Amino acid sequence: MDTYKLILNGKTLKGETTTEAVDAATAEKVFKHYANEHGVHGHWTYDPETKTFTSTE
């Protein structure tokens, strides 16, 4: 398992979190669920070199 990072740049919520996942697709599902639960619906990007997802509203 690898550690993946999420950076949230929402209108009402900003911050970072991490998750352990078997691959990027699994981490993306976890992070999108997390963002949706916190009302963040933004544009998603992923940097495979740093294993970092960013959601920007």
Rank of each mutant, 00 (worst) to 15 (best):
D23I: 02
F53C: 02
T56I: 09
F31I: 00
L8G: 01
Y46C: 02
E57Y: 06
V22F: 12
S55L: 15
A21F: 04
A27N: 00
T18L: 08
H43K: 11
T45G: 06
G39Q: 07
E37C: 12
F31P: 00
A21Y: 01
K51T: 03
V30C: 07
F53M: 01
V40D: 04
V40M: 08
I7R: 04
E37V: 13
D47V: 05
H43L: 13
K32G: 03
T19Y: 13
L8N: 01
G42H: 04
Y46K: 00
G10Q: 03
T19R: 04
E28L: 15
L13I: 14
T26K: 05
T50M: 06
A21Q: 06
D47P: 00
Y4N: 02
E28Q: 08
G10N: 05
Y4C: 04
E20S: 11
K51Q: 05
N36E: 15
E57F: 05
K14H: 12
T12F: 15
K11M: 14
P48Q: 09
T45K: 07
E20A: 10
L13D: 06
T17E: 05
G42R: 03
G42F: 06
T17R: 10
T54F: 10
L13N: 08
K5W: 08
E37T: 12
V22E: 13
G10D: 04
F31K: 00
A24N: 04
S55D: 05
T50C: 05
K29C: 09
P48L: 06
T3S: 07
T3D: 03
T50A: 06
D23Y: 02
G42S: 05
T54R: 06
Y46Q: 00
P48N: 06
E49W: 10
T26C: 07
K11G: 09
G10P: 02
N9P: 03
E49H: 11
E37W: 07
H38K: 13
G10A: 05
N9F: 11
H33T: 12
K14Y: 13
T19S: 04
E37Y: 10
K5L: 08
T3A: 05
G15H: 14
E20V: 14
A25S: 09
E16S: 10
F31T: 00
H41M: 11
K32Y: 07
F53R: 00
N36T: 13
T54D: 03
Y46E: 00
V22W: 12
V30H: 12
T56V: 09
D23E: 03
E37Q: 13
S55E: 05
T50S: 10
T45L: 07
N9D: 12
A27F: 01
F53P: 00
T50Y: 05
T52Q: 04
P48T: 07
K11E: 11
G10R: 03
K29V: 12
G42Y: 05
M1Y: 13
L6R: 00
E49Q: 11
H43C: 14
M1S: 09
Y46G: 00
G15Y: 15
W44L: 08
Y34I: 07
T17K: 08
E28W: 15
E57L: 04
N9G: 04
E16H: 09
T45A: 09
V40N: 04
Y34D: 01
V30Y: 15
K32L: 10
I7A: 03
H38A: 12
M1H: 10
F53T: 00
E49T: 12
E16M: 09
T12E: 12
T54V: 08
N9H: 10
K14T: 11
E37H: 09
